[in-house]
Simulated assay, not measured.
Amino acid sequence: MEVFKDFLEKMDDPQQRERTEEVLQWVAEKYPQLEREVKWNQPMFTDHGTFIIAFSVAKQHLAVAPEQKGIVNFSEAINKAGYNHTKMLVRFPWNKPVDCNLLAQMIDYNIEDKADCTTFWRK
C-alpha cells in the first residue's frame, strides 16, 4: 500500500481516509495480481498495462471509475444497490457501506473483458 501513501496522507477527513484505505487494501488483497499505481492523482489498479479501476474522493462520496463500459454493464446493479452514477463513475456515499460484492463484479468484469487489451483505455 506504500504506493497510495501520499494520496491517503493528503486527505483531510480521517474517516474518509480510513474508508478509502480500507477499500484500497481490500482490492489489493483480493486481486494481488493487479498493479497499484497513482495516475492523475487517483489511486488505480491496472493489469498488464491496461486500466482496471480507479478511485477518487469527493466531499460526499468515494468515486469508483470502472470505465464507461463497466458503468453501462452494471448500471442496473448499481441503481439496485442504492448508488448513483454518471457515465464514468459510481458514487459510494461516505455514510453508506461499500458494496464489495458489486465492486468485485466490476473488477472481475474489467479483468476478463480486457484480458487481450493492449491499450490503457478501451478503444
Rank of each mutant, 00 (worst) to 15 (best):
residue 55 F to C: 13
residue 51 F to Y: 00
residue 110 N to R: 12
residue 74 F to S: 09
residue 35 E to M: 01
residue 2 E to S: 15
residue 65 A to V: 10
residue 45 F to G: 09
residue 88 M to D: 15
residue 44 M to L: 15
residue 52 I to D: 03
residue 37 E to R: 13
residue 96 K to C: 07
residue 27 V to M: 07
residue 11 M to V: 06
residue 37 E to L: 07
residue 34 L to A: 05
residue 78 I to H: 07
residue 58 A to V: 12
residue 51 F to I: 01
residue 62 L to C: 04
residue 37 E to A: 13
residue 73 N to Q: 15
residue 87 K to F: 07
residue 12 D to R: 10
residue 24 L to I: 06
residue 101 N to P: 05
residue 23 V to Y: 12
residue 21 E to C: 14
residue 82 G to D: 07
residue 38 V to P: 12
residue 29 E to I: 12
residue 102 L to K: 10
residue 110 N to E: 13
residue 105 Q to P: 00
residue 62 L to Y: 01
residue 79 N to D: 14
residue 111 I to F: 03
residue 58 A to Q: 12
residue 93 P to L: 00
residue 7 F to M: 02
residue 119 T to P: 03
residue 72 V to H: 06
residue 17 R to F: 11
residue 1 M to I: 04
residue 121 W to M: 15
residue 121 W to Q: 12
residue 25 Q to K: 09
residue 108 D to S: 04
residue 113 D to N: 09
residue 106 M to G: 07
residue 49 G to H: 09
residue 78 I to Y: 06
residue 59 K to T: 06
residue 3 V to R: 12
residue 74 F to D: 05
residue 1 M to N: 14
residue 28 A to W: 09
residue 67 E to N: 06
residue 3 V to N: 01
residue 54 A to K: 01
residue 104 A to G: 10
residue 54 A to Q: 08
residue 46 T to S: 13
residue 68 Q to S: 13
residue 119 T to E: 10
residue 27 V to T: 08
residue 77 A to Y: 10
residue 66 P to S: 03
residue 33 Q to Y: 12
residue 63 A to N: 11
residue 60 Q to C: 03
residue 48 H to V: 06
residue 57 V to N: 02
residue 100 C to R: 10
residue 61 H to F: 09
residue 43 P to A: 05
residue 57 V to R: 02
residue 37 E to P: 09
residue 67 E to Q: 13
residue 62 L to H: 09
residue 19 R to W: 07
residue 72 V to Y: 11
residue 13 D to T: 00
residue 103 L to K: 11
residue 122 R to W: 06
residue 60 Q to Y: 01
residue 101 N to I: 00
residue 77 A to S: 03
residue 27 V to R: 08
residue 92 F to M: 02
residue 96 K to F: 00
residue 78 I to L: 05
residue 2 E to R: 14
residue 8 L to V: 01
residue 33 Q to A: 10
residue 98 V to N: 05
residue 28 A to M: 13
residue 95 N to V: 12
residue 64 V to T: 11
residue 98 V to L: 02
residue 12 D to S: 15
residue 117 C to H: 06
residue 67 E to F: 05
residue 1 M to V: 12
residue 93 P to C: 09
residue 85 H to P: 04
residue 82 G to Y: 12
residue 37 E to Y: 01
residue 42 Q to F: 08
residue 71 I to Q: 03
